[in-house]
Design a protein around this nucleic acid. Structure first.
Length: 316
DNA sequence: TTTCAGTAGGCGAATGCATG
DNA sequence: CATGCATTCGCCTACTGAAA
């Protein structure tokens, strides 16, 4: 019997999304400050993006000398737009003797890629309400993007607070899915937007686009046999109003009604909203329940902490 | 074959910062 | 001043590839 599940994520505006301790709550004001203050090297965030052009000769040399791990870092940054040092470590530096060693190795490698002008470090906040410094955030430089994608169409820009928070939250969710899959020994295929987007036709035949943040396929075995689950995951930081959330649910319902999912998935992926606050989970659940036009059983809502319960099928 | 430069793994200590 | 935490720095050792 095939279990049928899917997932969309929403989180309150906190940063980085899903951190396990109290420091997970990084209010927008702190993030704004981080983007405004000079970075570690005494440059402003905008100045940090002013890197000299990566010439063809040096690009060829880097292309030939970068390690497979270096490429994976660039690919992850290209995928998500922005990643914290911690997220890069959890994506790529997973085979070290200790987490501390992995952390040092991550920082050293990121610094080297920065020296090569392939990535850019965003300014970060030092100190704060709970002491300590906030993690550094990274993005591809224009040269790094050119090396990765072979295109000139990229300029490292200073992100808005909301966009940065959204990118980091999506990456955090991605990491949670992978870590959950690993701990439950599930096979996972994960697609990040815009590759996760899906086209479909509306009632009037107009061409519409469904824009989930993540598209996840999980395969494995449970007590009922093998399963092959598809999930749409949407990361929302609680900045959207509930009517906006419901409107988005309506788009998923329309996509479901269009039948466009049949060719891609064979089943309609379920949609899971995830937030890091139970209060927000309750609000979204109640709003969906009040909206009769939304298909029963299509939507689920969870905190990031409970994500594994959905992925392994113990929650619905 | 030897030397050298670059990189990485690993360890310990110091720094920067706001809070209590 | 102690605390908490991400980050930086210095040092050592080992490996690899290029150059002498």
């Amino acid at each position: 019997m095939m279990r049928h599940t899917s997932l969309i994520l929403t989180a309150p505006l906190a940063y980085p999304f899903g951190y396990s301790d109290i420091r997970s709550i990084w209010p927008v004001s702190c993030l704004s400050a981080a983007l405004a203050v000079p970075n570690d090297r005494g440059h402003s965030a905008s100045e940090a993006h002013k890197v000299s052009r990566l010439g063809h000769r040096r690009a060829d040399h880097l292309r030939a000398t970068l390690s497979e791990r270096d490429w994976r870092i660039l690919q992850r940054l290209g995928e998500h737009g922005f990643l914290t040092t911690d997220q890069v470590q959890r994506f790529v530096f997973t085979d070290h003797a200790s987490p501390a060693t992995a952390t040092r190795s991550t920082r050293r490698t990121l610094s080297r890629l920065e020296r090569h002008q392939l990535i850019v470090r965003l300014a970060r906040q030092q100190g704060g309400p709970y002491g300590g410094s906030h993690p550094a955030s990274w993005q591809l430089s224009s040269g790094g993007a050119r090396l990765l994608r072979g295109t000139e169409k990229h300029r490292a820009t200073r992100p808005s607070v909301r966009w940065l928070a959204h990118c980091l939250a999506t990456a955090e969710t991605h990491l949670h899915v992978r870590e959950c899959a690993r701990s439950h020994r599930l096979s996972v295929d994960l697609t990040v937007e815009p590759d996760a987007w899906r086209h479909y036709l509306g009632h009037g035949g107009q061409r519409l686009t469904l824009k989930p943040d993540l598209l996840v396929r999980l395969r494995g075995e449970d007590t009922d046999g093998s399963f092959d689950d598809w999930w749409f995951i949407e990361v929302d930081l609680g900045t959207e109003s509930l009517p906006t959330v419901i409107n988005k649910c309506g788009q998923y319902a329309a996509y479901c009604a269009s039948g466009s999912w049949d060719d891609s998935f064979g089943v309609m992926p379920r949609v899971l909203w995830v937030t890091d606050k139970q209060r927000r989970v309750d609000q979204i659940r109640q709003s969906i329940a009040r909206k009769r036009s939304l298909a029963d059983g299509l939507f689920s809502t969870s905190t990031l902490a409970n994500l594994s319960d959905y992925l392994d099928g113990s929650a619905t």
